[in-house]
Design a protein around this nucleic acid. Structure first.
Length: 445
RNA sequence: GUGGUUGUAGCUCAGUUGGUUAGAGCGCCUGAUUGUGGUUCAGGAGGUCGUGGGUUCGAGACCCAUCUUCCACCCCA
């Protein structure tokens, strides 16, 4: 059998794990700084929990898990089985829906507003591309149980804080679903909001003409498209856009509310310069109801590296009414690609061992191993080479596992001193047996 | 899910209009040399040419299928 990892999945080696952990810790620190509590949920959920939350396209991309045992037994029509008949579980597609399930299930013991962060992999049965995997790590922060717009402000500040600490320059696109509804309302296409926003969302990619032809394809009339046209040109300058929108949408109370919400938020964030009001931003996940966010890295063409927004009714699907939430997500895998592309990762973050004990003589084995035990007990990372073999082999090994030092001790020849060699320079020093631990503890400081 | 693309030693790739025992560099292993590794030298292992069919006297090269890769849609982190 040929060894091969499954489509759209990857293995991470020493360097990659070290780098990922480095960024994950920065994110965790950011979440904690904003007072979110950790939560972990199972990798799979009941299929009903997942289905119908992400739109038709989302349902298709959920990894379904076959029923245990004879999974065809419960199928009524074998020529056309329903998905729920043969699969009763699915791998989580995002972290927001499992979170909503958790909140609904545990509403009695949670005090609201409840803030949690969650760093776990999610799975999508998508066709892989660069920056698009079938298993990837999401890092989410959500707060539920309050309608306060201060939470939108905090979410944007959290984004700024986190990306600043990571050192990745980004732009945060913001919009509000209510503005999109308002536009649809004043243009008389309220019943076709989704079709309109899906087309508008592509404007950065296909341009104004592309959006128009897309709308024509979807049977929008020329008059309707003419009315919608101002939305194609709203970009960048936040104040001007808000001023214009207030006039344009004055016939829609929902639209006006959306603008006011947006205005409240953009006026209060700590670093408004990384915000971009982007009326074309729609986001496909259909549970969003208010503010929506999407983060893009500057100077890297890889799609969004984060997204989120306000959802008013997500827990209602699980029976818990009147719980509004806001959440944001960091796409770790894409963030890593950006950092690698832009060469922004420090090179001193590899988590490797401090010292390899080189074996030259079986008679010294016990003494060598005692050295390893003593160092380990004091927090030094030690690799004890298991065999007495050629030095070249042992040195190569030490080099490869990233050790900074090797120790050579032969009790017959060396007696009470130990040779400590720095791998990078090749320099060596002799250290008295009693001083060895002190030497490495000093290095660690 | 639709359309296209890729696949030769561990890695990066050569391989001429289909024609004998499929090559290189790097890496790996062994030995020598270097005052106990990183240099240099010599030798060696390793590929049913992604997989399965087909065309042909003959296929790594052509055809079909399938898997994988990357790209564009779709959608998204």
């Amino acid at each position: 059998m040929k060894p091969q990892s499954s489509k759209g999945t990857r293995d991470f080696d020493l360097i990659q794990v070290s780098r990922r952990n480095y960024v994950i810790e920065l994110l965790r620190k950011a979440f904690q700084t904003f007072s979110f509590n950790p939560l972990e949920t199972p990798s799979f959920e009941n299929i009903e929990t997942l289905m119908g939350k992400y739109g038709d396209e989302g349902d298709r991309l959920i990894f379904k898990i076959l029923r245990s045992g004879d999974f065809m037994k419960s199928v009524v029509d074998r020529s056309n089985p329903d998905i729920k008949e043969i699969a009763d579980k699915g791998l989580r597609y995002d972290l927001t829906v499992p979170f909503a399930r958790y909140v609904s299930q545990n509403s009695g013991k949670l005090s609201f507003p409840y803030k949690r962060y969650q760093i776990q992999p999610v799975w999508r049965a998508d066709r892989p591309q660069k920056g698009r995997y079938r298993e990837f790590l999401q890092c989410d922060a959500d707060v539920v149980g309050s309608n306060s717009l201060w939470q939108e402000v905090e979410m944007i500040d959290l984004y700024s804080f986190a990306f600043k600490s990571i050192g990745l320059p980004v732009v945060i696109n913001v919009n509000n679903r209510k503005i999109l509804s308002g536009i649809a309302e004043v243009c008389g296409i309220a019943n076709r909001l989704m079709e309109f926003t899906v087309a508008l969302d592509k404007i950065d990619k296909i341009g104004e003409d592309g959006v128009i032809s897309e709308l024509i394809k979807k049977d929008f009339s020329i008059e309707e498209i003419d009315k919608l046209k101002p939305s194609f040109r709203l970009h960048s300058n936040v104040d001007e856009s808000i001023y214009f929108l207030k006039d344009w949408l004055k016939g829609s109370s929902e639209g006006i509310q959306g603008i006011e919400e947006l205005e409240f938020v953009v006026k209060r964030v700590q670093n408004p310069s990384i915000l971009k009001l982007n009326v074309s931003l729609a986001r496909g996940l259909n549970y969003y109801t208010g503010c929506i966010f999407e983060v893009n890295a500057l100077n890297v063409d890889i799609g969004s590296i984060g997204g989120g927004g306000r959802y008013d009714n997500l827990t209602a699907m699980f029976g818990l009414e009147n719980i509004s939430g806001v959440g944001i997500s960091f796409g770790l895998d894409r963030i890593m690609l950006c950092l690698e592309d832009l060469n922004l990762l420090p090179d001193n973050i590899i988590q490797s061992c401090d010292v390899v004990i080189i074996r030259t003589d079986e008679n010294s084995s016990d003494d060598n191993y005692k050295i390893a035990q003593e160092l380990r007990e004091n927090g030094i990372s030690v690799d004890y080479y298991p065999d007495v073999v050629k030095l070249k082999k042992q040195f190569d090994y030490a080099e490869k596992c990233g050790a900074t030092h090797v120790i050579i001790f032969n009790k017959e020849i060396d007696q009470d001193r130990i040779k400590v060699k720095k791998l990078a320079s090749g320099d060596h020093i002799w250290i008295d047996k009693k001083e060895l631990l002190f030497y490495f503890l000093e290095l660690k400081k």
